[in-house]
Design a binder for these strands. Sequence first.
DNA 1: GCTTAGGGTTTG
Length: 728
Amino acid sequence: MNAVPGRHRPPETNSSCVVSYLAVKANSEGAGVPLVVFGKHFGKYSATENCFVLFPPSTTMPVIVSEDGERPGGRLTVVPISHISTDVNHDHHSVTGRLVHKGPLVSSSIYDFILKAAIEEGNSSPQETSSINLVLLGALASDFSQFVNQGDVVTASGFLVSKSPTAQKDKRHACNLLLSGDQAFIHVLRSPPHDLTSPGQAKRKKRFPPAAVASPTKSTYVRIAELKPGAVVNVYGVVVFFKQPFKSRGSDFCYSLKITDQSQQNIVCTIFCPKLELLPQIFRIGDIVRLHRVKTKMYKDSLNLVNWFGFSALTFNGTVGAEMNPRTSSKTFHFTEEDRRIVTELRSWVAGRDLLPPDLTVPLSAAKPGMYFNLTCQLLAKAPVNITCTLLRVWDGTRCPHALLEVTVDADVVEGPRSFPEEHEKLIANVLVFDNHVQSVQQLKPGDFLRIFNLRAIAGCVKVPGLTSSQVGVLNHLSFHLHGGTAYGRGVRLLPDDSPEVQELKRLTEAVQDDTNINDSALWDVWKTPPETPEREASAEFRTGSTLQEARHLAATYRNVVPVRSSPGGHLAPLDLSAPFIFRGRKSFYGCKRCSKVAAITEPTADGDKTIDEKIIAEAFGIHLLKWVLVLEFRLQDAGGTLDAYLWRDAESFFNVLAEDAAADQEAQDRIQRTMDWICPPEGSAGERPWLDLCLAAYQTEDGENGKEQTSYQICHTSAPSHQHLQL
DNA sequence: GCTTAGGGTTTG
């Protein structure tokens, strides 16, 4: 029995509204929209291949492919495969062999992915075991699957050794090598480029990330204490201080940071760049930076570093055990085992010491009058107060124990909703940013995730701009000021959507929205704003030309987000039905292109306390709502033979999960994954898979290519074993 | 090939 996570073809049907994958297809004809499938797997529909293709689960590159003779060096000793034993400490050992077996990439609820492989030595004596199994977990497995081919010479290090359960059967080494996490490393020696002449290989080569195909150039790094004036050097360090970048009086942005390393010295680095994105992407104290080509200069009896021609930077999370994704704007960069080692050593060196200043990032719930702190938050609305001050309305999903000061601004100048449900207002902080920061928040949009550095909580301030004489600051009501200047790293920074802190913030703010029984006043505030002039439209909400991602951002803030366009006569109309016609939290809903009769929009009404939902809005638009379905293909086997059968019509009752939830909700996806892991254990052989009583129905479909009728089968009226059963 | 800033709490 085989559930195929990667490629599905939905059963053909005459039903007019077949469902998620058709919706996916329609939606992806343009830009190609990534969608969540199961667990953390992302994919998109490929129109050319008529299938759904999964993306790798991670962008980390624990697998390094090189075309020259360089091997992972450092302090690792290459040991023969026959020397591998559970009794030996292999921390500083590596093994090398040619890849003789590469198993399929198997999805796993615990590790995301598992892949089995085997390597073989060429020069061992006949008496010795010359091949050994590798078990790769997580991102390493998916990268290996993508980039490594049979015949490649593979060097593995950072492995754990365990008994091989298949040794008797496969006659390989009695142990296998388990590779996972930050320590594990695979180096692959690829045939030289002139061998890559066949079209297939050329195509494969093109798919390698730039980091993987670049020939590694050995870089040497100087410890901070050993730096001498007047040299251009490469340096690694832990960030102990950084300012937000600011515009210099010259032609560049200026970025100032201070780093330290195991030599126990600090050094200030000043980096000038014409573009913000070229600067190191430092998010917090403790991040690790790799600076290439910086020049040492004396200033007031201290040595400084300034970027020099050919400068480039990588930044890493400084936490022990965190993913080793280098942050950089460089299109190509070298990241070798040596880098991995240096970052790992710096991480553990810092972790064992009390040398970093405390991280002042606290949630709103911990804000106290008078304190300076960093706030990670989502921007909900923005408004200019005067020429030197802008109001940011933000939240982080926590509630400040102190009452928050209300700041009133002219409704016409608010970007984002003018008001929020009362339950939400209690969670929203008013942040006033002054002077140089006014410009840096100009490009921010409602929905963005930010970190505000060195924000000051101010109680009962009567001088808050935007307050009239009747609204003087109430004693102990907190407002938040971002004072002018860059002292203490003061400033605002947009956080990338994929950063862990943003994921956590989304979880908190979504939980808040689920918990509070909000009405839809914010939506209707936006909804009822008629398109007036083009200028007004451009500055108003929904957001002319907004991307799918921006719409999803907005959806995190509102109960319902309905993308519309203006139509002749000043009416509103839904977008082309290739796009979702409504976003509700993490869920998106599509309309059927064939069955919908889109009318001029009438304002939907809800009777009594009934919540306005996708059904009411679909009705108001004349949209025939598409239903999400799960589609899985099973291969069934008994003594009589095998049969392929789909599960779709009754998939929801089979898993006891709504397809709509499975499209947006991790818990629902996990439930499906647990059931599938039981039916089809990722590690188990076919003999270990359970026997199931299934009800099958045969149905006729038309073969798309030659128009002939064919018989298909689907699983119906069947439930997967209950939860209790699965936990036994 | 070499200008910029050179950390260290506020007008509000």
